[in-house]
Design a protein around this nucleic acid. Structure first.
Lengths: 346, 346
DNA sequence: TCACACTGCGTAAGCGCTTACGTTAACCGC
DNA sequence: GCGGTTAACGTAAGCGCTTACGCAGTGTGA
């Protein structure tokens, strides 16, 4: 694709102003070494002529990009959509453009995305979503980001610890503890924990803490492992409940899974919260909308994105900054004290 | 920001392969004029060395971008999130990168976004979301896109007619007719139509058709105008229902608004569908999840995005292509025959 | 056998900017 | 009035790639 016909270049503006392109460049970028009169003339002219900087030339010549890369696991997962919205809004306040890539929870893809962003000279890259428990995989990403920051790039992560860059850290353990404790306090002593793939640190953190709290309270917890997206979390949970009719509560380690559970329970005609209580973690927007509305541990998702963006605009600190974000328990309709009305096995 | 140290350039690969950078370039791009053996050697080497093309250099030198711009009204609106997911997936199949901008339903911002994308030499730009009824505003965008396509860019729109480029057109009128007819057939004759800002063509199309169907059936329809996001659609509707207790159904012109209505009705303890039926349009994913689940006219949202992406990869046709996407009525729990149980005025 | 077409590759001229460095002229204090 | 600054520009060397063009070497038909 060629340049638009009649598209004006810096040299055109310079000629019109009767100066060299160096002076024109300096004028437009507001650098020193140009008299105010000249600078202003150039700027006015550029405006009039409809001059738009060629980003590629500028970047190639050593200028900075205005691109912020955002890598998420899955863009249509509400968790990430809300987080992304936060990033986009914050970026736009600074005239930055967000480029979204999604990894589909595949570490290789994620690496490739980061590599591309770095090659594109993105001004900053934000990696959102759980890390992987496999240390080798994380090491590759870690090195990539380190090299990137070494040459002046800025990186931040949301929700992963081990990448050696500034991090916004939702307190996953705390969130799990909150919901677990809530269920225990309601009186539940036999429950199903709906978990995701354990090679994700988020899942690991939440699961570990949930189980710790539950067992400490003398409760019995069965773990159901499904995919994190919640696609089949619901049906698996219903099966588990049928197999263990004494269970009175379901603790899902993400709202996505919790909502899937709610949907399937409704289909199976198991009443919430009368027969079983259900709780989630995250507080995606739909959590409030579903019915019964979902009790959950809330993270301010858009703020997570906004915070990450904010971190990347500040200069790199000597040691990576870590901004811990606490969860807040939101009790809604989906949880209640157990009344031991038996779930009938099918 | 400088290039990463040890970042490999094309010349490095060329030297390693013992060929000129011209040959290396041709090899990597799969162009003719290179023997298969040499081409393969270069490609293998590039892979091993972790070579990543410098997009800026490539583009500046006349190559094509791999960037597809997507402009949406609001990224965290599920409608656009699902649509965006379709675009992203389709783009990734072709190794293209999606850059998302959001206009917040502001025509000026939208223009600016398009302009930026064009200046960035995006390979394609997709503008999603309703058009504006103000013809002057549309004219500016139209001219911009025309110029862009003239120089080889590809543009497509989703859901707007008048931009002179390929279009994916959800049948808004048809969708409105479907839900309106459904409510009429259930026996409703007095209803509230929840509408958005009428300077959006989508709103206009849906509203016009809905009212046409309703009045043709001899039904009475009151229009409640709110913002399209559904933020205050619910409360406004509850007010309207209280003012008109005879109304037995609510037709919301978007699911976002319908869901807001459901939430507020629940809070107001008005039962759905026993006291009022509620129907929406779009079929966002939550529509199935809310309770009662929402009757709606479904558009395959991800497919809309996918289709738009597909249009931009095909060469420009002599006349703009228009791909009409029909809606499909999905009857769920939120609608039923009216039973005239009175809503108590407060 | 020679002219002619390919094929396979290298050479080099940009693409539109940024910026280090060089140049000129005005200005300073003594 | 002179060396030394400093302000205000211009010159030109890239940034890393694409691609038009040139030039061998090999094959083809008459």
């Amino acid at each position: 694709m060629s340049a638009p016909p009649g598209s004006v270049r810096l040299s055109d503006v310079a000629r019109a102003a009767g100066v060299s392109i160096a002076t024109a460049s300096r004028s437009l970028r507001g650098l020193a070494g140009v008299s105010d009169t000249v600078a202003e003339r150039v700027r006015d002219l550029a405006q009039d002529m409809g001059y738009v900087t060629n980003t590629y030339a500028r970047t190639l010549a050593g200028g900075r990009t205005t691109i912020v890369g955002l890598i998420v696991h899955q863009i249509d997962d509400p968790y990430f959509a809300e987080l992304a919205a936060g990033v986009v809004r914050a970026a736009e306040e600074q005239e930055l453009i967000v480029q979204i890539g999604h990894s589909g929870r595949d570490p290789e893809r994620e690496l490739k995305q980061i590599r591309t962003l770095v090659a594109q000279r993105a001004r900053a890259v934000i990696v959102a979503g759980s890390g992987y428990t496999d240390a080798r995989r994380e090491a590759a990403a870690r090195e990539l980001l380190a090299r990137y920051e070494y040459v002046g790039g800025r990186a931040a992560v949301v929700g992963r610890h081990f990448l050696g860059v500034d991090a916004v850290l939702p307190d996953n353990s705390g969130a799990a503890a909150l919901t677990a404790r809530h269920l225990v306090e309601l009186g539940h002593r036999d429950l199903v924990v709906v978990s995701g793939p354990v090679d994700l640190t988020t899942v690991q953190d939440r699961q570990r803490e949930a189980l710790a709290v539950l067992t400490a309270a003398g409760a019995r917890a069965r773990v159901v492992e499904t995919d994190f997206t919640g696609h089949d979390a619901g049906s698996a949970t219903v099966t588990a409940l049928r197999a263990n009719p004494e269970a009175t509560a379901v603790l899902a380690l993400s709202d996505a899974m919790a909502i899937s559970v709610l949907t399937c329970l409704r289909r199976a005609e198991i009443e919430v919260p009368t027969q079983v209580s259900v709780a989630g973690i995250d507080d995606v927007e739909v959590a409030e909308i579903v019915s019964p509305s979902l009790t959950t541990a809330a993270f301010p998702l858009a703020d997570l994105g906004r915070e990450a963006m904010a971190l990347t605009t500040r200069p790199r600190a000597h040691r990576p900054r870590r901004k811990m974000i606490p969860a807040e328990l939101i009790v809604r309709e989906s949880t209640a004290a157990p009344n031991h009305r038996q779930i009938r096995a099918r």
